[in-house]
Write a protein that binds this DNA or RNA. Structure first.
Lengths: 196, 196
DNA sequence: GTCTATAATAGGATAGAC
DNA sequence: GTCTATCCTATTATAGAC
C-alpha cells in the first residue's frame, strides 16, 4: 500500500468528519442529515459512503472527535509541577468546549448514549479517561498540601470525583436552558466550592 | 359547553401524552414517531391530530409533563418545620426521576433545548421554579443553623445554587455513560459534599 | 475515487367516511 | 370524535457512468 494514498484517504475522512461536525453544531447531533453533510463538505453521497458504511458510523466518528478533544484539553493543561485544583480542572474542560463551539452538542451525545450502545461505548471510554486524569490531579493537589483534606487523599478523591465531574454537564445544561445563566459567576463559584 | 365533554377531552389528551411518554422512555425523546404513539395509545392518527396540531406540540406537552413533575416532587418533599439540606433536595429530585423511569429521557429534553426555542422555554421555566424552591430550602437551612455558612445566607445561596443544581444532570449523564456508575455512592457523596 | 441519478422507505400529515 | 386510507416530503442508501 502506498503511504501517500493512505494519508490522503485519512485526510479526506477527517474532512468529512469536520463537515459533519459543523452540521451538528448548526442543526444538532441528531439533526445531521447526509444531505447537509454533502452540502457542507462539497462532496457527494458516493464519496461519503466510500468512507463510512452508514450514517451511524459517521456520527460515532463525530462523537469520538468531540470526546477525544476533552481528554486532550486536560492532558495539555496538566502541569507536573503544580497540580490543578478541582475547580481549575473543570474550568479547563469548559473553556475547551466554548472555544470549539460544541457546548450545545456534547449534551446531545451524552443523552444519546442512554439509547445507543455504540455511542455509549465511546462516551464511556473517554469519560473514564477524563475521570482518571482528574483523579491524578486531585490526588497530587491534596498531596501538595495534605491539610486540604482530612483523611486519605485517594479515598477522598474517589468519593468526590463523581460530584465534581457533574459540574461540566451541569454547566452545559444550565447554559442551554436558562436565558440568564451567568457563566463567569458559575466558574467562580466552582473555584470557591472546591477550594480548601 | 358541557363540562363532561371538556373533562373527557382533557382525559383523552392526557392519555395520548401518556402513550407518547412511554414511547419516549422506550425509544428516546426524538425517537418518538406518530406511528409508535398510535400503536402505544391504541388510537388513530386522526384522533391524535385532533388533540395536537402536530408532533412538535405533542412533544412539548411530553416535556412539560416530565418537567412539571420535578417541581411537584420538590414541593411534596418540602417540610415547613425542618428545611432540607442541599444534598437532600437533589436526592429528592433524583429519586423522583428513578421512580418514574424517565432518568434517560430528561437529558434528551435538556439537550434538545439548546436547539429548539419552544423546548427551551418550557425547560427554562421549570428549571427556574425548581431553582427557586431549592433557594428557599437552602436559605431556611442556613438560617436554622447560621454557623453552617460564613456570611449572608442569601448571598451564599445565590453563589452555590448553580453548582448544586449541577448534581442532577451530572448524576443522569454519568448514569447513562458509565457502566460502573455507583448511584448510591453518588447520593452519599452529595450529602457529604454539601454538609456543614 | 468520485459523481449523478435514482431506488427504497420511513414518517408526518390530511381527506373523507362513519 | 374517531377511523381508514392515502398523499407527500425528507432522507438513507445504492447503482452505474466517468
Amino acid at each position: 500500500m502506498p503511504k501517500v494514498s493512505d494519508a490522503h484517504r485519512a485526510a479526506r475522512r477527517e474532512e468529512i468528519i469536520d463537515a459533519a461536525l459543523r452540521c451538528a453544531v448548526r442543526d444538532g447531533y441528531r439533526g445531521v442529515s447526509i444531505a447537509s453533510v454533502i452540502q457542507e463538505s462539497g462532496l457527494s453521497a458516493g464519496a461519503i459512503y466510500s468512507y463510512f458504511a452508514n450514517k451511524q458510523e459517521l456520527l460515532v466518528a463525530v462523537a469520538e472527535r468531540i470526546l477525544d478533544a476533552r481528554e486532550a484539553d486536560l492532558a495539555a493543561a496538566h502541569d507536573r509541577d503544580t497540580p490543578l485544583a478541582p475547580g481549575e480542572v473543570m474550568a479547563t474542560l469548559i473553556e475547551g468546549l466554548r472555544r470549539e463551539d460544541i457546548a450545545a452538542v456534547l449534551p446531545q451525545i451524552w443523552a444519546e448514549a442512554a439509547f445507543d450502545p455504540e455511542i455509549r461505548a465511546v462516551a464511556g471510554r473517554i469519560f473514564g479517561r477524563v475521570r482518571n486524569l482528574l483523579r491524578g490531579e486531585l490526588v497530587a493537589w491534596v498531596q501538595a498540601d495534605p491539610s486540604r483534606v482530612e483523611g486519605d487523599a485517594e479515598e477522598w478523591a474517589d468519593l468526590v470525583i463523581p460530584v465534581i465531574m457533574s459540574s461540566v454537564p451541569g454547566f452545559l445544561v444550565q447554559r442551554a436552558v436558562l436565558p440568564d445563566f451567568d457563566e463567569e459567576s458559575y466558574l467562580r463559584a466552582l473555584q470557591e466550592t472546591y477550594r480548601r
